[in-house]
Design a protein around this nucleic acid. Sequence first.
DNA 1: GAACTTATGCCACCGAGTGGCATATTACCA
DNA 2: TGGTAATATGCCACTCGGTGGCATAAGTTC
Lengths: 229, 229
Amino acid sequence: MDAMAPTEPTLRERKKLRTRQALIDTALRRFTGQGFDGTTLDELCADVEVSKRTFFRYFTTKEDVAMAPTQDLWAAFLADLETREPNGSPLLGLLQDALLAALDRMSAEGWADRVLRSRRLAADTPSMNAHGLDFCDRTTRTAIKILEERFGFDPHDLRPRLALDVVVAAFHCALEGWTFQSGPAGRDGLAIRLREAFCAVPGIITMTVPQPVTRSPRQEFPGTPRTDD
Amino acid sequence: MDAMAPTEPTLRERKKLRTRQALIDTALRRFTGQGFDGTTLDELCADVEVSKRTFFRYFTTKEDVAMAPTQDLWAAFLADLETREPNGSPLLGLLQDALLAALDRMSAEGWADRVLRSRRLAADTPSMNAHGLDFCDRTTRTAIKILEERFGFDPHDLRPRLALDVVVAAFHCALEGWTFQSGPAGRDGLAIRLREAFCAVPGIITMTVPQPVTRSPRQEFPGTPRTDD
DNA sequence: GAACTTATGCCACCGAGTGGCATATTACCA
DNA sequence: TGGTAATATGCCACTCGGTGGCATAAGTTC
């Protein structure tokens, strides 16, 4: 009766999925409310009615639970890279398309909102930011392996690695703008930002320094829209 | 009596410098020998004959002590950025020159060797790698502020940020090659690698995917020089 | 050499993360 | 349906990174 139906996650697996999601949601809520450091795992676990030991069977670290949404995106990116067909196109374009496609696949309810909370947290929680960057770094290395495997790039050629790093950098730019500045919200808003960031990439090479402006050290812009700390 | 003489670090300051350096050296030695996680701070402190409490007055985290050498380089980079004169040159070139100049200033005895140990450690210690990346990230943000302050870049223009990220990415490429592959050792060897990485940057935009190679999924290269896990 | 400043040591404490083992829950099969 | 294997969870004790508070020692200044 269930031989070929894809709708058969066993009861056990459904429960696991539910506790996992409960941990993520509760964590993001408490972290946002009381701060990351201000929340102990004991509190969180008591809230979800799960032992601390169990928490660490779902997530490797306290930071990990808050970064699940972003990790989903990168997983989709890697999956896309495995199959995407290059038609003699520039590598950079291929990578950009792959990331946009991955983003397009993030259709889970409330995904964008979770990413938003997660990023805002990371912004003022050093250890979260650090772990996020480390995850990106590992993902990048995996992606390079996929590229070398599929297309036979020379491991000593630095260009694929650099191209990938540029795409990641553009993503971070987009993410930061989307997280902290006004503009279209939701996943599609992020996609717009991402496209804009990609457009800025060629300017990396050509951009020149405006002019040798020599100003007094402490002078500030009259109407700078953001405060710097 | 000491108004203008630069040669007057008080006894106290000399002692502090010595304990700091002792902690760094001993840490790198023990970490390399027994592994990062295999070394407790109690051991390290007992070795240097310093209380654990004192350790944390010198370094913020256990990871921090092992990353001091790299941090010196980035500090020099920021200092250079503060004063370097742009002559209508491309921003990218300015940043590259600044980093090369900073590297050139790393003349402390054994600096290159400490960086080498540090990087090798970071390669198989996730938390060290994470903290290193986080430090780079913070440095990048500081650098951006300096650039905006000095040259009046528009904070919404993504190109400066991307250019900076490319330079950092190139540095990481160079560092990794220098750390794990054969080639000229020492600071100058790293400088050579760095120049090579910079040369590869324009290729980011133009590089194309070799050809639509379609191979059976599990096939491998006959004589691939490295094993993939 | 006294008085002040500052670095250090010591101690108790919190919280993240782990290993081991008993128990409860689910899956599988006769 | 009942019994057994597989696995998820809870509980407990423990290690270790990191912090706050306070007393003491060392260096500095007059």
